[in-house]
Design a protein around this nucleic acid. Sequence first.
DNA 1: CGACGTGCCTACTCGCCCGTAGGATGTCCG
DNA 2: CGGACATCCTACGGGCGAGTAGGCACGTCG
Lengths: 210, 210
Amino acid sequence: METRVTATPDAKPRGTRLPRLARRRQLLSAAQEVFVENGYHAAAMDEIADRAGVSKPVLYQHFPGKLELYLALLDLHVDDMVNRCRDALASTNENKLRVQATFQAFFDFVSTQGEAFRLVFESDLRNVAPVRQRVERSLRECAEMVSALIQEDTGCTSDEAHLLGVGLVGMAEVSARYWVTTHGSIPKDAAEQMMARLAWRGISGFPRTA
Amino acid sequence: METRVTATPDAKPRGTRLPRLARRRQLLSAAQEVFVENGYHAAAMDEIADRAGVSKPVLYQHFPGKLELYLALLDLHVDDMVNRCRDALASTNENKLRVQATFQAFFDFVSTQGEAFRLVFESDLRNVAPVRQRVERSLRECAEMVSALIQEDTGCTSDEAHLLGVGLVGMAEVSARYWVTTHGSIPKDAAEQMMARLAWRGISGFPRTA
DNA sequence: CGACGTGCCTACTCGCCCGTAGGATGTCCG
DNA sequence: CGGACATCCTACGGGCGAGTAGGCACGTCG
């Protein structure tokens, strides 16, 4: 007795036929689960198909190969992160609040979609050019947006501002990742506030020279 | 191809017999080259053996398997990093100088041994427990040492100080990695100084509450 | 000189997993 | 009804690379 599963996500009744787009979404979701749990290399296409309640050829009717499937997911989350960062920086004109909003953006990012942030921050495929490119580009893009603001206020050279920007973004990334793995010791907003305070004290009125 | 600069004598005189310990050191060096260039997964035991001018069974007479070989190298560099960090923090009693010394330690670390820091910071085997354990432990240990000092001066709770410590160490790691890949734009000591200044401004006299 | 140990080699097995060939089973429309 | 079209299946091919079997060369010591 097969009832019609309309939009219920993550059902595995081997035998339901789905329209193409819905199937694709489901496959992406299953793939994300497996890639996040195991990383790229330990993830098997068979398991992704299994978890979607489907056989392997179906997977290959939607994606030309394992790498392309991975890149599709990676793009999704890389863009998500950059957009969150951009929105945070554009949410106000006061730099102190910008810093707070940006840290909140990073903490939000690592809190969503299970542990999908691992695709961006802990990919085990960085040695493959298209992956490396996307991951590094996302960091640079965030740092770029930050360093543009830094340059306005401090008069640092472009290179110097970039270094500071990368450092700040890196601090946000690493602290957010640490916080998310030790859930329970500090509430989210307290952690965000503390890190934002650290960053703002460091960067506000940063002197051009020693 | 990349430049073939090795600590060990180059060349593959397939026929030179070496005493056990010397051979082992050479194998470790060859393995480091290959693992750093390609990551764990894309590195082939055949190529490691080749680069050492030796055949594969020799490799297996020194290491029980690929993973153990990798772990031996990883331990080396993880310990190196933690020691550099510890020494830097112990090099003075004045916290401002401690911060400077610590950033210098991270910049030194990413500057040595080709790009061996990739083993620690960009391992593509973090999904395997013993690797993940070592990598995370190294970050925690550095952050632990930093947070102990933070706690003394700020009266933060242990959890709060840990978060700050992880953030600062993360900033050092990420900025050092960024700097090393963009060699030429900023001299090493200038980059160290600037990042140290950012961190010190942020952390010195950090207020307990908002 | 021959027996033994050490260092090394060539050449194979074997398991894993990506990707595919070819066939079955609905659904829609004339 | 019957054919066209889509969706999905059960297998299998084939490459790649970790790890191994078994043998050769060279020295040394009784």
